[in-house]
Structures are given as structure tokens and as C-alpha cells.
Measured scan of single mutants.
Amino acid sequence: MSIQHFRVALIPFFAAFCLPVFAHPETLVKVKDAEDQLGARVGYIELDLNSGKILESFRPEERFPMMSTFKVLLCGAVLSRVDAGQEQLGRRIHYSQNDLVEYSPVTEKHLTDGMTVRELCSAAITMSDNTAANLLLTTIGGPKELTAFLHNMGDHVTRLDRWEPELNEAIPNDERDTTMPAAMATTLRKLLTGELLTLASRQQLIDWMEADKVAGPLLRSALPAGWFIADKSGAGERGSRGIIAALGPDGKPSRIVVIYTTGSQATMDERNRQIAEIGASLIKHW
């Protein structure tokens, strides 16, 4: 067993022997301040990774656009098919120029040779490549099948209805392509620590998230040296922004954090800054 596999296998073990965790309302004060600064709703939840206990939450059962955070769930569904012998990570998928959609920095470079399922998941999570996500959605049967996968996990809230990039439209009061912070946090925890996926697939999923290259201005910008984070960000229309993450000190994750916002007129930089400040408060009061 590799060191990384050992780390993920012992996530519940280490967490069980940690000192009790206590909620700190100071972080919620910052979440509410972010709402004021952005002029928009902000949803927040913080779960203990081992027990699933909610440590703090704000608007945990209000719907927010998922945006690209759905790509972690998508690759979880792909990995479940791999575990069941219905898919192979090494299978190569070929596609054409007509398949390319807006923001496809990886797939646009491989029109000639195609990409493997493993490479597509890596591109979808680490670079948020939209064509990679659409190609992977095709392998599982489309958005409705991802929703069905989530329902089978016990998540009857999260739903995907459309493809990239239309799913980022974020129309107010439109339930399409949305989740709730509580539902997303619980589902992410199941994917990373539950028995739904094999140990190898859980490790692969967290490795992809740990290698995320496009979430630097968010929670990662607030992390002290030595902290662990595996995350996936999302951005959408109407001032929408979000991030889902597993993080913790001492090089291992111990909490799940989900943050979503929508309806702001603020710039992307300002949305990023507010999420980073929430992260800084979380870490300060850990």
C-alpha cells in the first residue's frame, strides 16, 4: 500500500482519535458579512469528516447552483462504474471539434489522439474542462443518470439537468442544476469515506481534487503551510461562485467545507476574496 493510499485508508482512524471539535460562531459572522459585502445569498456548511456531524452552517438547506462543483460527483459516478466493471479508466475516447464547448483548455489539445477516461476526469476536476465533463456525462448516460446515481446514494436534493455550459445559467428560483450545502457536503463525505467506492477509487477521487489547479484564489489562499486540501470550485452566471473541499491540518483532511453564493453584482475577484476570507476565519478558529 502506498503512503497516499495509507493516508486515505486511515482518515477515519486518525479522526477518531482527534480531540473533540467545537464550532466557532466567528466564522458564521464572516459568512454573514460576506453576504453584506456581496449583496447576495451565501450558503455555508462545515462537517466533521469522521462523524458527519454538522459543526457550523448557514442557509444549509437553500438551493444554490452547483456550477462546476458537480464534476466531482460526476467522476465519482464514473469511478463507481469502474468498480462495477462497467468502465475502464484506460479506455480512450475520441471526439471532434464539434464536441468542444466553451472553456476546454485540455480537451482542445487532444482532438487528434483523444483522451482516456482517467485523463478526462483529471481534466474535468483539476482544470474544470467543460468538454471533458460533457464527454464523461455521455459515458454514464447524461445528466439524468448522474441525478439517479445521487438518488441511489441517498441524495434526493442534488440534481443535474443540463450539460456544460448551460448548467451554469443560475436563474433565480430555478431548481435545475442545483444542490443544497448540506446535501453536497453529505454526498461528498460519502464519496470520500464511505463504502460506495473502493479504496482505490476513493484515493483516485481525492487525488484529482488535491491536484486542483484553478481554485488557488479561494480556500487555498488562506491555508497555512502543512495543511491538506482537496477541492473543486465552480463559477456561473449572475454572480455565482462555489467551492467544495476536504481539508485539515497535519497533512490530512478532517472536515468537509461547502460554500456557495449566487445573485451578486460583485466582480469575480471580490467573490473570490470573500470566500478566501471565510476560509481564513475557519482556519483561525479551527
Results as ranks from 00 to 15, higher is better:
62 E>K: 06
99 D>L: 09
174 D>C: 06
185 A>T: 03
247 L>T: 06
202 R>I: 07
123 A>H: 03
159 R>N: 07
149 F>K: 07
226 G>P: 07
32 K>F: 08
228 F>H: 06
149 F>L: 08
22 F>D: 07
7 R>F: 09
191 L>W: 05
249 P>C: 07
132 A>E: 00
151 H>K: 15
175 E>R: 12
237 E>Q: 14
46 E>H: 08
126 T>H: 06
125 I>N: 03
52 G>D: 08
272 N>E: 06
125 I>F: 02
64 F>M: 07
206 I>E: 09
144 K>M: 12
274 Q>D: 04
123 A>I: 04
165 P>T: 10
175 E>T: 14
257 V>C: 07
204 Q>A: 12
8 V>Y: 15
169 E>I: 10
133 A>G: 12
168 N>I: 05
255 R>T: 05
142 G>H: 04
217 P>L: 09
46 E>K: 10
104 S>A: 08
232 K>G: 00
168 N>H: 05
119 E>D: 13
123 A>Y: 04
278 I>G: 00
256 I>N: 01
167 L>T: 08
162 R>A: 07
92 R>Q: 10
121 C>E: 01
62 E>S: 08
259 I>F: 07
162 R>F: 03
201 S>F: 04
91 R>L: 05
276 A>N: 09
178 T>D: 02
81 R>G: 06
197 L>C: 05
78 V>H: 03
12 P>I: 14
164 E>A: 00
214 V>N: 07
255 R>N: 02
126 T>P: 02
196 L>C: 14
116 T>I: 06
223 L>R: 05
214 V>K: 08
272 N>F: 02
96 S>Q: 12
85 G>I: 04
256 I>P: 00
58 F>I: 08
49 L>D: 02
268 M>R: 07
219 L>M: 09
12 P>A: 13
138 T>K: 15
4 Q>E: 14
88 Q>V: 11
208 W>I: 03
103 Y>T: 05
106 V>L: 14
60 P>I: 12
37 Q>M: 14
263 G>F: 04
206 I>K: 12
14 F>C: 09
142 G>C: 04
269 D>A: 14
25 P>F: 08
172 P>C: 10
246 A>S: 09
227 W>S: 02
8 V>C: 14
249 P>A: 08
127 M>W: 13
205 L>I: 10
80 S>N: 12
102 E>C: 07
31 V>M: 08
286 W>T: 01
232 K>L: 00
187 T>Q: 05
9 A>Q: 08
30 K>H: 07
94 H>S: 12
86 Q>S: 15
218 L>Y: 03
19 L>A: 15
68 S>H: 00
41 R>W: 07
255 R>S: 03
109 K>M: 15
113 D>H: 11
74 L>N: 02
239 G>Y: 02
272 N>M: 03
11 I>W: 12
101 V>G: 07
56 E>R: 09
167 L>S: 06
130 N>F: 00
150 L>D: 01
165 P>Q: 06
143 P>F: 03
237 E>R: 13
190 K>P: 03
262 T>W: 08
255 R>H: 05
191 L>C: 07
28 L>K: 09
216 G>M: 10
236 G>C: 03
57 S>R: 12
62 E>R: 06
142 G>S: 06
28 L>G: 07
8 V>F: 15
117 V>G: 02
212 D>Y: 03
114 G>W: 04
222 A>R: 15
44 Y>H: 03
7 R>I: 09
227 W>K: 00
203 Q>N: 13
34 A>P: 02
17 F>R: 05
232 K>N: 01
191 L>N: 03
239 G>C: 03
217 P>I: 06
276 A>L: 08
272 N>G: 05
138 T>Y: 12
56 E>C: 08
282 L>K: 02
10 L>E: 04
142 G>L: 01
93 I>E: 05
231 D>A: 06
67 M>T: 11
263 G>P: 04
121 C>N: 02
108 E>V: 14
19 L>D: 10
162 R>K: 07
232 K>H: 00
29 V>Y: 04
112 T>M: 10
211 A>F: 09
78 V>K: 02
134 N>K: 04
202 R>M: 07
150 L>Q: 05
62 E>T: 11
54 I>T: 12
148 A>K: 14
242 G>M: 02
36 D>F: 15
186 T>L: 15
122 S>F: 13
266 A>D: 09
20 P>V: 03
280 A>E: 15
150 L>H: 04
160 L>T: 10
151 H>T: 11
6 F>I: 09
277 E>P: 02
117 V>F: 04
56 E>T: 12
57 S>W: 11
189 R>K: 14
135 L>W: 02
58 F>G: 05
186 T>C: 15
112 T>P: 14
54 I>E: 11
35 E>K: 03
238 R>T: 10
270 E>M: 13
33 D>E: 12
208 W>D: 05
75 C>S: 07
122 S>E: 15
18 C>S: 11
37 Q>V: 15
41 R>A: 10
193 T>S: 15
154 G>V: 04
7 R>G: 11
139 T>E: 15
5 H>Y: 12
188 L>F: 13
245 A>T: 05
220 R>A: 04
170 A>K: 06
186 T>G: 14
284 K>E: 15
260 Y>Q: 02
162 R>I: 02
223 L>H: 03
100 L>G: 03
123 A>N: 04
108 E>K: 11
71 K>Y: 00
275 I>L: 10
286 W>K: 02
205 L>E: 02
69 T>F: 01
234 G>C: 06
254 S>V: 12
103 Y>A: 06
172 P>Y: 11
53 K>R: 13
267 T>I: 09
280 A>M: 15
124 A>K: 00
130 N>G: 05
272 N>R: 03
